[in-house]
């Protein structure tokens, strides 16, 4: 995976906008041209629009928030307003090549159900999330405070996140659920790929998952 910036460029943490584009690029990299995907917690549909424009990928977004659904419709993105906390009943088995959940799993309660449902309706799942055990976050906790950063941009009292987990935690859950990690990528807050101890050095984690 190419880092978002050329090596040698001055390093500053990715801004929210850069991080989003980065997130999209990593996900697009994993999906072949013309595939049919499901994007859970799709917001205003920007990822789907990006996937369609860059790789002719079709599919549907799923959202519960009214404003996001409206945003999708404005963006011309096909969105289904359903609460995925209750599962994906009605969605047919293996009807998508990929089910994606981009930077949203940490904001949902029924983690296990959602992961299982993703791999029921799609051949492969793509998950990205902020790694709570990233060095900077550990330092914040060690200093006595909940971490706030570009990748965790909320105060403890206004965060939409309800599940706080790490790369190590997520892989343990996959193992428990019989989910195979087909590929993992981790990046630091500067968008540089991390291979050495990603649970410590990775701020953003990306997974390509399948049935074990």
């Amino acid at each position: 995976m190419t880092p978002i910036r050329p090596r040698g460029a001055p390093l500053a943490p990715l801004t929210a906008k850069e991080r989003e584009r980065f997130d999209f690029a990593v996900i697009a990299h994993w999906i072949p041209e013309g595939e049919h995907v499901l994007d859970l917690g799709c917001g205003d549909g920007r990822l789907l629009r990006y996937l369609n424009e860059s790789k002719r990928i079709t599919g549907y977004g799923v959202e519960i928030a009214h404003e996001s659904v409206l945003g999708c419709i404005r963006n011309g993105v096909d969105v289904i307003q359903i609460d995925i906390e209750g599962g994906l009943s009605g969605f047919e088995d293996r009807s998508f090549s990929h089910a994606i959940i981009s930077q949203a799993l940490q904001a949902m309660h029924s983690t296990e159900r959602i992961l299982n449902e993703m791999l029921r309706v799609a051949d492969e799942a793509i998950v990205s999330f902020p790694n709570f055990a990233y060095r900077v976050n550990r330092e914040a906790i060690a200093a006595g405070h909940m971490p706030v950063s570009e990748d965790l941009p909320y105060e403890w009292y206004d965060t939409p996140n309800v599940r706080f987990f790490t790369i190590a935690d997520f892989e343990a859950l996959c193992d428990k659920l019989g989910i195979a990690v087909r590929e993992r990528l981790a990046f630091d807050a500067f968008g540089q790929p991390v291979t050495d101890d990603p649970n410590l050095n990775g701020s953003l984690a990306f997974y390509r998952l399948g049935r074990a």
Partner: peptide, 18 residues
């Protein structure tokens, strides 16, 4: 939603607002 799922089965374009 029955309408929506029937359309999705056929990969038709559909937006659904509740």
């Amino acid at each position: 939603r029955e309408i929506v799922f029937a359309l999705m089965h056929n990969r038709r374009r559909v937006a659904y607002a509740e």
